[in-house]
Simulated assay, not measured.
Amino acid sequence: MVFPEYRPRRMRQHETFRAMIRETRLSTEQMIYPLFVLPGKGIREEVSSMPGVFRYSVDQLVKEAKDCLAMGIRSVILFGLPEKKDGLGSGAYAKHGIVQRAVQELKNKVPDMTIVTDVCLCEYTDHGHCGCLAGQEIDNDATLELLAKTALSHAQAGADMVAPSDMMDGRISEIRTTLDEHSFHTVPIMSYAVKYASAFYGPFRDAAECSPQFGDRRSYQMDPANSREALREATLDVDEGADILMVKPALAYLDIISRLRDEFDLPIAAYQVSGEYAMIKAAAEKGWIDGERIMAESLIAIRRAGADIILTYFAKDMARLLAKTKG
């Protein structure tokens, strides 16, 4: 048999060759670890639908952040569970709200940790939607002021970056203007620019206790069938002042990550969401898959599609695997 001059298997013979020409790599610097914080003291409770993921009181959150930093995970994103909820989500922008207290404590106790904050109202409203209501409808424009107040309160507490996840029209412009007016010009906005109305969010809603009490979120989150619309959404956020564009979820939307990477020169983030994490964990616990390899393969796929940054609940697991591989 006559072979062509180039035989690809030559460079696959052993790990030294494979590592030498590997096109896509993972590192802990590329990952942001989501953390849930709630009122109280000494609390570290596991989320039943997300094995290995916990809700922390602020004192325990500090310990977790220190552990993360020691493992090389330098960035976290905070989601808060308030003591009380109301129709306007006032706990989101309260001066001494749970996220605000957590940010202050982390900046005091773990100053080298980069803190990103989720900016949304769904965890704080008694109806579970991402904005304030006018009857049974989300009042987009009235919500913008509340989102800007939330982002500002996070910046005042010491957040390094804010990440609006609400998908209201015009919120990036409102937040950027408010931050700039209060001299927070250097606080970047990581926009959930392309957030789909996905079924992959179920375990997160358990963790954050933020399921809608009526209806759903399809009037403001994107239709999973749409691709071109993602470019329009991202373009709006670029024009309004976003610094990073995020796609959420990740694995079912690798094509969207790739399209944004080709279209824009801003950093692209992708959120490997709770359902993606839970499925891999559950199948691994059943012995149906090799959990470590699937975890790594899924993260590589997200990077290969074009994401510069990955928000993932696997950050600590992947940090351990990377350390073991290097060792």
Rank of each mutant, 00 (worst) to 15 (best):
F184L: 08
P188E: 09
L81A: 03
S183R: 04
H182P: 02
Q221Y: 10
E174F: 02
A307K: 10
I268P: 02
Q60D: 08
I294P: 03
P4Y: 05
R101K: 14
I21R: 12
V62G: 12
H182Q: 13
M295T: 15
E145A: 14
A307N: 09
K248P: 14
L144A: 08
E23I: 08
I302R: 09
L26H: 03
A70T: 10
L106N: 07
P249I: 14
S258Y: 04
D262Q: 07
R74P: 00
A208N: 12
Y6N: 10
I244S: 01
I280E: 05
P267R: 04
L144I: 03
L179Y: 01
L61W: 10
Y6I: 15
L179S: 05
T28D: 07
G80F: 11
E5P: 01
S90M: 03
A19R: 14
V53K: 12
G306L: 05
T16F: 09
V119C: 00
T235S: 06
I175L: 03
G275K: 04
S48G: 03
A70G: 13
S153M: 15
L321F: 00
L251R: 09
F17V: 12
T125P: 07
I115S: 11
R217L: 09
C132I: 14
R259H: 03
T28F: 12
S198Q: 02
A307F: 11
M71E: 15
Q272P: 02
K281L: 00
I98Y: 00
I77N: 06
R9M: 09
L231M: 12
Q272V: 13
A199M: 06
K195L: 04
E83V: 02
R55E: 07
A283E: 02
N108A: 13
I300V: 15
L69D: 13
Y220Q: 09
Y124I: 13
D118Y: 04
R7Q: 13
G275S: 08
Q221T: 10
Y220M: 05
M279R: 01
G42H: 05
P51W: 08
E46Y: 07
F184G: 05
G91C: 08
M318H: 04
L260R: 01
V273Y: 07
K109D: 11
I289Y: 07
A148Q: 14
L69G: 10
L322A: 00
E276F: 03
P188L: 04
A142D: 02
I310L: 06
D243H: 11
I172T: 05
R176Y: 01
Q100D: 01
L81H: 03
Y192E: 06
V110Q: 07
A102M: 11
D223L: 03
L322P: 00
D67A: 15
R18F: 06
E123S: 13
S173H: 06
K195H: 05
V187P: 05
R7H: 06
V103I: 15
S219Q: 09
L266S: 00
Y6L: 13
S173P: 00
H14K: 09
G131H: 06
I256W: 00
A92P: 07
R303K: 15
K281F: 00
M71N: 13
L266W: 02
R259K: 09
C210Q: 10
S219A: 14
P8H: 11
Q13I: 15
F79R: 11
K248M: 14
R9N: 14
D166S: 15
I256Y: 01
H185S: 12
A283Y: 04
E145M: 10
D118E: 01
I302H: 11
C132S: 04
Y124C: 12
P51R: 12
A199Q: 08
M279E: 03
V162I: 15
